[in-house]
Design a protein around this nucleic acid. Structure first.
Lengths: 348, 348
DNA sequence: CTTGGTTTTTAATAATTATTAAACTAAGTC
DNA sequence: GACTTAGTTTAATAATTATTAAAAACCAAG
């Protein structure tokens, strides 16, 4: 709902075809002697056109006086019920960092559930949402609309140049680290188990892998590159299963890089079930990190930014900490290598 | 922050020992030419004495314009980053039902993250948390503490007799429906693929299965009963794999009931990979329902309560709708059979 | 059509808030 | 002491909002 400029009760009255006296009475809660339908019509219209009285600009309050809610929005087509350990960790980091500062994270909806009208309602100043974190990459028009309604917007794992702040992991670095690690272990034939086939993130990770291989004068063989629709453990198993029929070939890879730790874990289980040893026969390394990198008997080697840290950094940004006085900050967090036990030297 | 009566900018100015002009400028965000300390002092004082401008009484808005918060808590050891499509759906239902009523769901933390001190802070009256939904079964002392702090507590998928409201699915009915369905298809040898081994819910579902089989004069053979640690697709595959070595036996089951749809789905993929046909060779049915029951090429037959509906019902309860004037309500929602294509007649 | 009750408007004006140029004040520098 | 600068006040007035009694309009029922 656009709010081009201040609108007065006199203008509201003209727009509604009623008297300013009635507008004032309704907006101040007078109910006796006012038709309830008229009352509601007045309120809906006033909120709809963004009416606020003179006297106070709510968005000018010093931070300490603000009601402490920060909204978060999921990119389409995510839903609360679609498992995503990645964004679950982001939310976890966001929740705790906000909580430590006396704020609460409030789910506003998913990108494709939020019409401009709905966004306008959410960000009406009387609702006191102090800022928004957007989890994942949303459509540019959506982001433009959002930043028009509130200036406190932080994009997580996406960047919108000149529109808002952003926090990302250094994903190219992750692939560089993983490839360097595998190369140092002697691996010269490396395959790819990709997931979340429709996402730009998949393509970006694949491109970064190709680039990182190139710096070692290596390349991906299309026969040993597969991409599945989602990216959970079961799909990691499916992905390696699709390639195992070719395992007798002399050029079969000695290591695979996977889209995420979940897929590496699933692939590892599937390989072991088929009699392969990980990392003795095949090494598996992942383009991100998670609990699976550090917990349990099988710990996936990988590189990436802790998504908890993304959430924490986003919380700090949305609250205005370490923010430039003007313009927008793009934070790129490091993506260090985490060595587990899923990678080992090339088998002789 | 009490608001005994209207205070005007002129009065603010007198109280602060400054001019009304400066008050107006500061409250409207004018920063150039105003000392930042003065600016903040004005705002703090204005908010402190409850100043609001004329023109609109926010607390008189029809319901549609008010923001209200309902907290939700996850049972231990869940975290936001531990995938649970079940509780994700519950949250989804809760979020939408609350949103439709002008409320927002706010994550308060997981059971084992919330000390009594922390709970006390959360439920301080100034924080406007209007009630709590508890997702899953928490420790009795925790629930007792929670209900001491606020009376608006709803337990989801758990019951605390005499302590709070609750909403559950009729899980015994689900198993009755599933067994009846399989029996009608001719199945007389039925196995169990259990998950979430450490949860009371698993044990309850298993017990309900045994009971439902008993009414058909059937029983579970321990050789065809397996339980895995978690309950995702990959683990469904593992569970059936563990039993397949016995498939040549004459008494191998013709159907398996699984802990949830995820496991049934994963088991189905694993069976197909081994050359079995589902449901031609083995039928799979699940003790709950989800999107996997109704979407896609493979649709899992199962019975259960839609977790979205649990969330919606909880929202209504926590807001006081259809609630008894005193005492506590325990809602048990029906668990209907949803027939997919994972079950079929016994193979001759 | 008349009547009674409810809702809304009118007109006026009081109260509140916004805005602005000029004047004032305090602090720092030379 | 003179000068400069930043912050604030003053005085005036325009704009916005609140309030109220009386009048007008509307609607349903008889």
């Amino acid at each position: 709902m656009p709010r081009p400029k201040k609108v007065s009760q006199t203008q509201l009255a003209k727009q509604l075809g009623i008297s300013q006296a009635l507008v004032s009475l309704a907006l101040n809660g007078r109910s006796t002697g006012i038709n309830p339908d008229t009352y509601k019509r007045i309120w809906d219209h006033a909120v709809g056109v963004g009416y606020l009285p003179k006297g106070m600009r709510v968005d000018s309050t010093p931070d300490s006086a603000r009601v402490k809610q920060i909204g978060f929005i999921l990119r389409a087509p995510l839903r609360l019920y679609i498992p995503s350990t990645y964004f679950g960790h982001v939310q976890h980091g966001l929740h705790h960092a906000l909580e430590a500062r006396g704020y609460r994270a409030v789910f506003l909806g998913a990108e494709d559930e939020l019409s401009p009208e709905k966004l306008g309602q959410i960000f009406h100043p009387s609702h006191h949402v102090g800022g928004v974190a957007v989890l994942g990459e949303v459509a540019q028009p959506f982001m433009a609309e959002l930043t028009r309604l509130t200036r406190r917007v932080v994009a997580i794992s996406a960047r919108y140049h000149g529109l808002c702040h952003s926090v990302l992991g250094n994903e190219p670095q992750a692939l560089i680290e993983v490839v360097r690690h595998l190369h140092a272990l002697g691996h010269r034939r490396i395959g790819w188990l990709g997931g979340n086939a429709t996402l730009g993130r998949h393509d970006a990770r694949l491109a970064a892998l190709r680039q990182a291989l190139k710096t070692h004068d290596l390349s991906l063989d299309p026969r040993y590159l597969t991409v599945v629709a989602e990216a959970d453990r079961a799909e990691g198993g499916e992905a390696i299963h699709a390639l195992l029929p070719h395992a007798k070939r002399r050029d079969f890879p000695t290591a695979f890089v996977t889209y995420n730790t979940q897929m590496a874990y699933g692939a590892s289980l599937a390989l072991q079930r088929e009699g392969w040893k990980v990392p003795g026969d095949i090494s598996l390394a992942s383009a991100d990190v998670s609990r699976l990198s550090v917990e349990g008997a099988l710990r996936i080697t990988g590189a990436g930014t802790s998504p908890d840290k993304l959430g924490e950094a986003a919380a700090r940004l949305v609250l205005g900490e370490s923010m430039p006085d003007e313009g927008y900050a793009d934070l790129v967090l490091p993506a260090p290598l985490v060595i587990g036990n899923s990678t080992g030297p090339v088998r002789k």
